[in-house]
Design a protein around this nucleic acid. Structure first.
Lengths: 231, 231
DNA sequence: CCGCACTGTACAAAGATTTCACAAAGGCGG
DNA sequence: CCGCCTTTGTGAAATCTTTGTACAGTGCGG
């Protein structure tokens, strides 16, 4: 795997150093910023493939930083936060963050999360445009077919869109809002969860052998759904 | 595999060189263009079998270049883009592009994609001109005949086109739009489904023994039709 | 004029989505 | 630990959309 740059944005020098240290093994270069503004500047200049962003910066909200970075970069964004309010988590993911770690965290956990993130970033690129596979499930995006253990599974248009979004973002939690926006484009958010719940249930009935112990589609309470799993 | 020519269209000399380099192994000749206009000229003169096209050229949109190239060439077109908006991707594929790689990409990935593309181009060509078989159905593309369990089945021109498209893409769901576009080229999409329904019904009457439990042509409600199963 | 293929209409059947009602699970304060 | 409250899962009815099919009209070449 090519050696890359990482960017750490945090106003506490102690945490900054700890994170940089943890990343040193996996990145050729780690740059640090202690404000949101400087972070955005470095993101533009250094073209990092990973950004570790602490919430509670003095000059900008975490959401604002995420949105700005996303405007001209598809770096993976990992958010650090003290609180673990579900509401906030969903908001950050909506703003373009890729994963979320609550403080306090161990160096080992951080490293594991980062590696999972990079693995995903790479496989995502390699896969785009053909077929996606996970355990017994094979999705052919071109042919619009889904095989479960070699058997063809029939999906309705809505179900197909749902599974497509979840599988193309395998491992990443998609918020209710994100799922709703791609499956019902140009529709008011309203009772999104109503719809999602019933369609997810229908999909699970078709692809999960045991709905109580799902192998593929996991629920992230208060946030959304995730296809397959790290951890 | 025959040695062929490739064309790289990109306004950044750095990327142009990187791509040319990656292609050098698989092509006898690689030519470069730094504008859309020059690219079209070279596409006409050099008759490349592969075109690598970067979006964001100074003089023309990517879509326009695709469409122009398609007018008098069946080269494989691979598009490079920084963004990875699905909307854009779909537009490009509609315009005649064959695959889509988002920047940044590795040389290895590019090579892999190019080879996959050429494999596809060749197998496609290898199929054209022979016969396609599935269970009791045999389609002779050259002789324009269809045999069902050894019996000759008569198809009208429209029906023939429909079956041809479905069989040459066996296992893949063809959308109403795709079918309509190949069977009624240069026609408004309008009431496509009306016509398709009628003609599909006519074809089924001729080749299916039981229309309620089809062996060959399957309906994907809300999407299109599929000939047989994948694999 | 006749036969053939395509175009267009109508309607019943099948399928998909939305909506509703309620059960199950999980968090939280007491 | 218990009950309350919010979120999630599930089954089924109601509604809307798409599909299959019969059939009549249109145009064209012989």
């Amino acid at each position: 795997m090519a050696r890359q740059t990482a960017l750490v944005i945090d106003d506490e020098s102690q945490i900054r150093r700890a994170v940089s240290n943890a990343l040193a093994d996996d990145f050729a270069k780690v740059v640090e910023a202690d404000t949101g503004v400087e972070g955005l500047h470095l993101a533009a200049v250094e073209k990092p493939s990973l950004v570790v962003l602490d919430l509670g910066l003095p000059d900008m909200t975490g959401v604002a930083v995420c949105i700005e970075i996303r405007k001209n970069s598809d770096a993976m964004i990992l958010v650090l936060s003290a609180r673990h309010a579900d509401q906030e988590k969903a908001t950050l993911l909506d703003a373009g963050a890729d994963d979320y770690v609550t403080k306090p965290f161990s160096t080992l956990e951080l490293k594991a999360r980062v590696r999972a993130l990079l693995r995903r970033a790479n496989s995502h690129r390699a896969i785009a445009g053909t077929t996606i596979r996970h355990e017994g499930l094979t999705m052919d995006l071109e042919g619009r077919t889904l095989l479960r253990d070699g058997e063809l599974v029939h999906l309705t248009p809505t179900e197909w869109e749902l599974v497509r979004v979840l599988m193309t973002n395998a491992g990443k939690t998609m918020t209710h809002r994100q799922l709703f926006a791609t499956v019902w484009p140009g529709r008011q958010y309203g009772d999104a969860q109503q719809y999602l719940r019933v369609h997810i249930a229908n999909v699970r009935r078709k692809i999960e052998s045991n709905a109580l112990d799902p192998r593929y589609i996991f629920t992230e309470p208060g946030v959304g759904y995730r296809f397959a799993a790290p951890q």
